[in-house]
Design a protein around this nucleic acid. Structure first.
Lengths: 210, 210
DNA sequence: GTAGTCTTGCTTACGATGTAAGCATCGTCA
DNA sequence: TGACGATGCTTACATCGTAAGCAAGACTAC
């Protein structure tokens, strides 16, 4: 099932991410993860204190991906790099929808994340923003991105199969009572997540930069 | 432990909401919920098909609370009632932080929610908005509110104890490397969730109404 | 009233989960 | 060589969701 050859926190986390991507978060158990690595469940505990810590590790992992592609150059106007943060975060979360509920739920206190926040705050203050406002902007962008992406990734934790939830109810909706919802389904108006996200982020950034 | 006297889906759901509020979502098990109601675990299955359905019921319950206090009068400009929806939703979610991760994760397809959406869409179109744009606004407000509230309610699913996560790391932060984060902690600048939420919602609504 | 059906809650049982405790097998270094 | 720390395995336990079937009352039809 797997390369075997020496566990490590890294390998355990990678395998867990693999497994969650493939089978969904609810399917992840220490035993199955062990099997996936060709190893017994209890062996994992040599490299991870418990399952919760493992899940935290997954979130940190995904966040690293989000930060990885970010430009380190924070000079110049803050709006462009804040926007690119939003889009990178969304991309990273969508790449691993299984961890999304975790990312939404758990604090992100990885050194990377703290360092990133610190640098952003510094850069935004240098650009003339008060500290409190800078933090508000960072948090609003981050929380909106998470909220939006939760909706976008389909909600059922197992793994989403179809389009947004509405479709399932399409034929159960009484045309007389729900004309607009039905029109949404047939025309797909307002179901473009790309557009919705981009526009909302721009509105927020524009609102904060005035 | 409880009134006994005849179960029902209503009573089961109410008790579950109670239990989650009191002990946190992870502590909720069918056995413990049964005990809380003075009944055996398997008895609950007469009124709820399985645990997942019970959790869905909890989400619907909380959403009902959010809708309950909303004005039914959707005539006139849409910005005020959309804003009041945002604030009602936040209040309802904060009132039951234990269900928040569920609300963020599960589709909301209760009849109430569908009816509400339909009416909003109708009212916004009557006010001249295109259908797609109306749906975007509803979804952006809803997803931002959920994202923000997830962060606000403290993340650890068990039950948050202290202030936002940063505090725990206050003394572990090197003052030379993290001057801005430390200043946030000491001055509490940018940690006013009320203000942050209100401002962001207003920015979004203003942005969409131009 | 009596017999039959429905409803509700209980009992028992099974497989899966997270993880504590201790054992076995190493490679490394004195 | 012999001790030792690191790693993985074995066994065991409490807890979980829930399938299957039983028991006792409530209600209906005659």
């Amino acid at each position: 099932m797997a390369p075997k050859a020496g566990l490590s926190r890294e390998r355990v986390l990678d395998a867990a991410l693999d497994y969650v991507d493939a089978h969904g978060l609810p399917a992840l158990s220490m035993r199955k993860l062990g099997a996936h690595l060709g190893v017994e469940a209890m062996s994992l505990y040599r490299h991870v204190p418990n399952k919760d810590a493992l899940l935290d590790g997954l979130v940190d992992r995904v966040m690293e991906h989000a930060f990885a592609e970010l430009s380190a150059d924070l000079s110049g106007p803050w709006v462009p790099w804040m926007r690119s943060f939003a889009h990178s975060l969304r991309a990273a979360l969508l790449a691993h929808p299984g961890v999304l509920p975790l990312a939404a739920t758990r604090p992100v206190n990885s050194p990377d994340a703290l360092r990133m926040s610190e640098q952003w705050l510094a850069a935004m203050r240098a650009a003339g923003l008060p500290l409190g406002r800078a933090l508000d902007i960072i948090n609003v962008i981050a929380t909106f991105t998470i909220g939006h992406t939760l909706a976008e990734a389909g909600r059922t934790p197992g793994h989403e199969d179809s389009d947004p939830d509405l479709d399932q109810h399409a034929d159960a909706l009484d045309p007389a009572e729900f004309p607009n919802l039905l029109e949404v389904i047939t025309t797909r108006a307002g179901l473009d997540f790309d557009h919705r996200f981009t526009e909302a982020v721009d509105i927020l950034l524009a609102g904060y930069s005035t």
